[in-house]
Design a protein around this nucleic acid. Structure first.
Lengths: 333, 333
DNA sequence: AAACATATTGAAAGCGCTATGAAAACAAAC
DNA sequence: GTTTGTTTTCATAGCGCTTTCAATATGTTT
């Protein structure tokens, strides 16, 4: 009836040693005679003893748990990162407390607080808008934090990303080479620095490098959903736009279907690049050309970086930029 | 430099009361004079005190944390459930430790153990194969457990699902009404009871009700990936099959694209139903007809059920079956 | 065999909080 | 003013583990 009855004290008594010794064998401490170790191990097995991680956490001030703040697990981009995070965490014997924030600053702050009160050893943060309040909370927290697939324009926190500006610039230039001059920049929220400060600038610089005047009207800000993209297609058609760069895959999927459903042939009459290469990109017809981000790796590297920080190891580079590639599939010529 | 310095003892001293009183105001206990309460609250605020949940967990034997075992966060079906789980968990002040299992029994067992050692108050389990070992582990754990979107043929654990057999039967019958007689059952692993014991039986019973002889050759077992579906299309064409029921959306997406890419018109020459109605279903062209499962709700209800069990409330129904619907989109006539 | 170094073990003090029984403070009733 | 009944508060004993520091056992060197 009772929960978790057998304690370290019980196995100490049963095996005729002190708690300290049991604790040592539990933690793989070297200074235990082989014979003693085996004796204790046997009792542990006999009693089906399972150490209480909460007590351990209190005593050692380490919980082997890290917090993961994610906008929405349902989003393919972030869930891929999360998977990389969890795999590496598991590899290093950490567990993950996962909390959805909906990119909502209040929820982020609140969740951050509860994670801290739960004494997590570190935090991986994913989110699209990092403002001064959040930065201040990070600083105050005195807890190792790493951003995964999320930019902080101030670089106030270690992070793992790709070069978003360069990637979009690259895409845009390919579109230009293919003969397009009216190229839309179909974006998620411009409140997000990744869009405003990186992707948009990459887009603009590609234009400038090729002598095309930047036209503000070709920048479309949306909330980034599939439906947004679908509706946007209409405006794209009306504006006689011949190509677009989308900042996320669901948005791109919407644009693509929106164009096709309205009778536009892709890529003959309209070319489209997207940015995340989630599974979706290959499932669309025509298949979406895209930046291929190493999503799993971004998460994995972020978690690995976090372990180093938690261990107070030497870090050579706190702002990791992973490589990306571009796959041209069937939504571009 | 130091971590988490200010303790309940500090605020007790500063406000001139005992720890017990501080603890009371922290936990909203009624028996505290208003004046005392305010005094303490002020000190808490001044000192920026944040209760240590680990210590609290050790003392109270409650961690306000539940474990969530999930095959893969990256899978749209399960991540939707997870979202429902997290939202309700948050509502009830619980956090979630999320662990990926890849449907691998060893990982499941291992993860279950670490969750128990972390003293989670309860567990939500998602997984496609529940075998005797796992059932035994559940039983031994003496920890409230609820299955979400996952069937246990033995009903040894409370669960929340839809009636998978009925749903597939329903789909199959519609396909029959549309004039198909060679209907494929495109399934994920048959080791999964949801496929073998529920969906397949629904399929078979629809056939029988309509005087169509069950043909084993029309049952295609795969691992359920997009690629599996894509490849399967070839066999479907060769076998002169005119319709199919797929057990998950990615598989269906693969079949659909595989058929279309090979020149088959859907739904004119081939009809297709899928089972989960993830976002994907609407993004495909033609759009996939599907069972619409209330994924978010399944997660939410499972979590709600778990809170009741954790609180030892009276439960009227431990095996919740939510309703489903069928949307006919463009992959069926 | 004495003297020292080293490898093993044990005792006990926390870690920061909750919860319990007893004491103190306050109120109402006599 | 005393008694009785409530409220409010305190002191303190854990929760199950880690982690010194000191004690003991073992081994090595002369």
């Amino acid at each position: 009836m009772e929960k978790q009855n057998v304690t370290i004290y019980d196995v100490a008594r049963e095996s005729g040693v002190s708690m300290a010794t049991v604790s040592r064998v539990l933690n793989g401490n070297s200074n235990v005679r082989q014979a003693t170790k085996e004796k204790v191990l046997k009792v542990i097995d006999d009693l089906d003893y399972r150490p209480n991680a909460v007590a351990r956490g209190l005593a050692s001030k380490k919980t082997t748990t890290v917090g993961v703040i994610i906008p929405d697990v349902t989003d393919g981009y972030f869930s891929s990162l999360a998977r990389g995070i969890d795999d590496i965490a598991t590899m290093y014997k950490y567990n993950i407390i996962l909390a959805n924030s909906d990119d909502n600053p209040d929820k982020e702050a609140s969740v951050l607080n509860t994670l801290l009160s739960k004494q997590v050893d570190g935090i991986i943060f994913m989110g699209n808008e990092i403002n001064d309040d959040l930065r201040a909370d990070f600083k105050r927290s005195d807890c190792p934090i790493v951003l995964a697939g999320s930019v902080d324009i101030n670089n106030s926190v270690p992070s793992v990303n790709i070069d978003y500006a360069d990637a979009v610039k690259n895409e845009t230039e390919r579109l230009i080479k293919n003969g397009n001059s009216r190229i839309a920049f179909a974006s998620g929220s411009m409140k997000q620095d990744v869009n405003k400060e990186y992707r948009l600038k990459g887009y603009v610089s590609a234009l400038e490098n090729n002598g095309i005047k930047f036209d503000e009207k070709l920048v479309f800000e949306t909330k980034g959903t599939y439906e947004d993209g679908y509706d946007l297609a209409e405006r794209i058609i009306n504006d006689k736009i011949t190509a677009a760069v989308a900042t996320n895959d669901e948005l791109a999927a919407g644009i693509l279907n929106g164009m096709t459903d309205r009778g536009v042939s892709v890529p003959q009459d309209f070319e489209l690049f997207t940015s995340n290469n989630t599974k979706l990109a290959k499932m669309m017809r025509p298949q979406l050309s895209s930046i291929t981000q190493p999503l799993y790796d971004i998460g994995a590297v972020a978690m690995r970086l976090l372990t180093k920080i938690m261990n107070k190891e030497e870090i050579d580079n706190r702002y990791v930029v992973l490589g990306y590639e571009i796959v041209e599939r069937d939504s571009t010529k």
